[in-house]
Design a protein around this nucleic acid. Sequence first.
DNA 1: GAATATTCGTAGCATTCGCAACGAAGTCAA
DNA 2: TTGACTTCGTTGCGAATGCTACGAATATTC
Lengths: 157, 157
Amino acid sequence: MAHMTDAPKDTSHPLPDFDLDSFTPYRLAVAAKRTSEELARQYRERFGVSIPEWRVLVHLAHTGDGTSVKDIEGRVQLEKYEVSRTAKRLAEKGLIAKTAHASDRRLVQLALTDEGRSLMAELLPLAKAYQAEIERRLGSAFDGLEAGLDSFLGDDA
Amino acid sequence: MAHMTDAPKDTSHPLPDFDLDSFTPYRLAVAAKRTSEELARQYRERFGVSIPEWRVLVHLAHTGDGTSVKDIEGRVQLEKYEVSRTAKRLAEKGLIAKTAHASDRRLVQLALTDEGRSLMAELLPLAKAYQAEIERRLGSAFDGLEAGLDSFLGDDA
DNA sequence: GAATATTCGTAGCATTCGCAACGAAGTCAA
DNA sequence: TTGACTTCGTTGCGAATGCTACGAATATTC
């Protein structure tokens, strides 16, 4: 690609102005990272649970047991290989159990163990409190944020 | 850790309701990932530039040459080791040049090469167009989103 | 029923990430 | 000047990530 002389440094291309700080994808990325990390600190340090693990656990807590990897894929915005690996880790930690589906043995059934359930019984209220704190912090701006996010997520998630 | 009998499956803990889809950190994460990937496709495929690389390039295009790693750290929400590695890659690709600062030789000056400049001359209009498309897509919801994001980012970025 | 195609989940591999430790360069204090 | 301390940037290492290919189980077609 056009590798001209390196000598005359400036003048050549008067690059257009561009302010990263007002670039929506960047702003979303930073906001997402902040909230995720702020929350993740709570359950990473206290429970040793990562974000993908958290997502899978929430889904299992929400939809009940007997969910397959395929069911979770997409619903929590994880690729199937991520779900697979996450499930493996959660099983190793004793938080979920993996069993083969009775009639279709391609499917793997995921279910919270008792230990997983009691962990979620502690975690979910924390998450709810965090959500409440966000809403409080944003005040009247919260509804606008929600409406904006709806436009992005409208299709499927 | 408390691994009780696995037999009696439910009843034990009536877990609180929790809907991941309406959890703000999750919604932000998904929206961020979508926009980033949508944009990244454009410049990853066409220019072979990753997101951290893009951020560093934008910063250099915006603030002019002679910026140090330390200057960039924080401004584009990257850790210093990320900036360091990103700069290394960009230099290998010939998009930026790294030179030692004249008086303080701890500092490394980063500057776009001519090749980097012409790449940015192509990239920045693409990004601007994408921003315009987002604003068009969101319509009246855009302002609300901005206000909400401001509340998250208010402090420093 | 046999051959083919499809779905589900996993694993290999290379890359990237995150942390923490390090070396080099500079500053400060005596 | 010497020695302790700080700042800047890089790197080693283990873990996580993303892609792709693969094997097992099922569905489909003839």
